[in-house]
Design a protein around this nucleic acid. Structure first.
Length: 588
RNA sequence: GCGCCUGUAGCUCAGCUGGAUAGAGCAACGGACUUCUAAUCCGUAGGCCGCAGGUUCGAGUCCUGCCAGGCGUACCA
């Protein structure tokens, strides 16, 4: 029997008993867990039934308790005030749950809700003028995790990266390098390509304070680029490729993957065409300054003080494009190329208004799928000194953070290996998984809408509510299973009736709950649901581990049954971490 | 001004569509390694859940008003 079926069995039983008692089939009621495991394995709140049957919740709970007939699944029922607590026979409860998890293995927790739905997750979307920073890592962790969660719920996911590769800001680093860079390359300077280009972007800002015409020169360069001037285009390609090489390294280190790349340089012209067509159809209009504008419907967007509708500029008077111009085009491209059921944009909360406008414009252009576009907005990452500002050097560089975390992980691993048994290779391998896991967990453990106040000391911690804590629980289980010598091969021959202490029950409860949490996570686009639940699962395991023996349990039956329980726990921990984009280790 | 987000323990956050005594981690203090990995566990201490009303048998959770902070409010991205 599966976990779901087990719950259904209990539901049906209660439903039937209530019908016999009150002559009516109860309306829907939910099954939950009692606050502690002594009370029972499952609980039913009788408030809803109270309304339907016009009796007090306590009375209903009591009556059902008296009438419920024990069978081969339900051991006993107890009323506790308005609550009806149910105990099952341990062999059924533990046996069914563990067997299901072990036989489903990595598929446990998955569902088919999204079967046949294609969905695009656009995330990261960096500019090619500077290296990635902590904000990008939050975006990346979120984008990857959401993609994995969607896949686990049956969706076909296309992960997209929209590269902002053109514009004045890109020209700034180009200009600085052209003027002062000489023949230097990332290679000659021993720098990652994105770091190298980023340095020239900073240099531009410094020089612009001193040199008067620099801003004008950069505008000239942009015009040259738009005109297709071969030399400028060549420079642009060269520098962007340096950046891409650098980014690729960071993606690999942090475990970010993409199926498709969109480049604004390739879509901005299409954006202009779409605007022109819209202008012809009167979706857009020209304002007094020559801007091409869109009037937002006052019903949803309100109005200006003057009483006019609010407007959004989609094309400048000289017909050069804006951010939203190319975004309109990219949105259309995405849908046309990939036949999407829905489309997610993982972008910071500061752009909420822009996306609201974008989706409205798409809708007004006649694209019905605009309602299937969803802006997954997330809060900013603040440093102790305040908001990150790349121009002022007030940033946490992604590569630096990853490298520092890795150093700390290496130190921790060495401390646990006083006899120097581990090879450098092995240490490196472990440190990588641990450090990246720590960063991702730190960024994903709070709901996306929360602003994160980046606390360096807390973020580098490997104790408590962290990724390494969860990885550690998994590694401990692996250690035990490795010494079990195949005694976990036959789940169905295992006698589970010996299990049932509070620690075992609590752990089992977490395993039962996992699929629901995956479901909650996908419904809310909120990976923190899984992070919190995996932490609670690891914690329940550690509590069990500290109080009870597995391999040295009192008798062989207990050893085998506990082995099954922890094997199932390992499955859940691994799957949950995987959905967060975090890898597990068998040794730590 | 308007829109969105946030306000829960000293700090960082959970708290599912209202339901059993408001939970965790960190920091503090006190304990547990001859025992399956102490990156662990146990205990102590710490809360007018921003404030004030309202709805309800029942509110941290829903409604209204206020206070404080963040972001946005278009020819930046």
């Amino acid at each position: 029997m599966s976990v779901r079926k087990l719950k259904d069995t209990v539901l049906v039983k209660i439903s039937e008993t209530a019908e016999k008692l009150f002559g009516q089939v109860p309306d829907q009621f939910e099954i939950s867990f009692p606050p502690n495991t002594d009370l029972g394995h499952f609980a039913v709140e009788c408030f809803g039934l109270a309304k339907q049957f016009r009796k007090s919740p306590a009375e209903i709970a009591k009556k059902i308790t008296e009438k419920i007939a024990p069978d081969d699944v339900i051991q006993e029922a107890n009323a506790s005030g308005p609550y009806l607590n149910i105990k099952l026979f341990p062999d059924v409860l533990f046996g069914d749950v563990c067997s299901e998890i072990i036989s489903e293995n990595h598929k446990y927790g998955e569902s088919s809700h999204g079967q046949g739905t294609r969905v695009m997750v656009e995330y990261l979307s960096p500019n090619t003028n500077k290296p990635l920073h902590l904000g990008h890592l939050r975006n990346g962790a979120l984008g990857m995790s959401i993609s994995k969660i969607l896949e686990a719920t049956g969706h076909w996911v296309v992960k997209a990266n929209l590269i902002n590769d053109r514009g004045v800001h890109i020209c700034k680093s180009m200009l600085a390098w052209k003027r002062w860079g000489g023949n230097s390359t990332p290679e000659s300077e021993g720098l990652k390509g994105d770091q190298f280009v980023g340095n020239w972007y900073v240099r531009f800002a410094q020089e612009a304070d001193k040199i008067q015409n620099l801003e004008d020169d950069v505008q000239t360069m942009l015009q040259q680029w738009e005109a297709g001037d071969p030399e400028t285009v060549k420079l642009w390609k060269t520098m962007n490729n340096w950046v891409y090489d650098g980014f690729a390294e960071t993606y690999k280190n942090f475990g970010l993957e993409f199926d498709v790349f969109y480049y604004e340089s390739a879509t901005y012209k299409m954006g202009k065409d779409v605007i022109q067509k819209g202008l012809a159809k009167n979706v857009f209009s020209k304002d007094d300054h020559g801007n091409t504008v869109f009037h937002l419907p006052t019903a949803e967007f309100g109005q200006e003080k003057s009483g006019d509708a609010k407007k959004v500029t989609v094309l400048r008077p000289d017909d050069t494009s804006l951010y939203i111009t190319q975004d309109i085009a990219t949105s259309i491209l995405k849908i046309e190329e990939h036949k999407l059921g829905f489309s997610i944009y993982v972008v910071g909360s500061e752009q909420e208004y822009n996306f609201k406008c974008l989706f409205q414009i798409l809708s007004s252009l006649g694209y019905e799928w605009a309602k299937d576009c969803y802006h997954l907005s997330y809060g900013m990452v603040y440093l102790p000194e305040g908001k990150m500002k790349s121009r002022e050097g007030k940033i946490v560089d992604a590569d630096v953070l990853i490298a520092e975390m890795k150093k700390l992980a290496v130190a921790e691993i060495r401390q646990r290996d006083p006899e120097d048994r581990l090879s450098d290779n092995e240490i490196n391998h472990r440190a990588k998984k641990i450090s990246v896991g720590a960063i991702k967990f730190y960024l994903l453990r709070v709901r996306p809408t929360q602003t994160i106040n980046f606390d360096p000391a807390e973020s580098i911690s490997f104790d408590g509510f962290t990724g390494p804590y969860c990885q550690y629980a998994y590694a401990r289980i692996c250690g035990i299973l490795a010494k079990a010598h195949g005694r976990t091969n036959n789940v169905h021959g295992c006698d589970f009736s010996v299990l049932g202490n509070p620690e075992e029950l609590l752990l089992l409860q977490k395993l039962i709950q996992f699929p629901e949490e995956v479901n909650n996570a996908v419904e809310e686009f909120n990976p923190s649901k899984i992070a919190v639940h995996i932490f609670n699962t690891a914690k329940a395991f550690n509590q069990f581990y500290n109080k009870h023996h597995v391999l040295r349990a009192e008798n062989e039956k207990l050893v085998t049954a506990r082995l099954m329980l922890i094997k199932a726990t390992a499955v859940v921990l691994k799957k949950g971490l995987e959905l967060l984009g975090i890898e597990v280790l068998e040794n730590m």
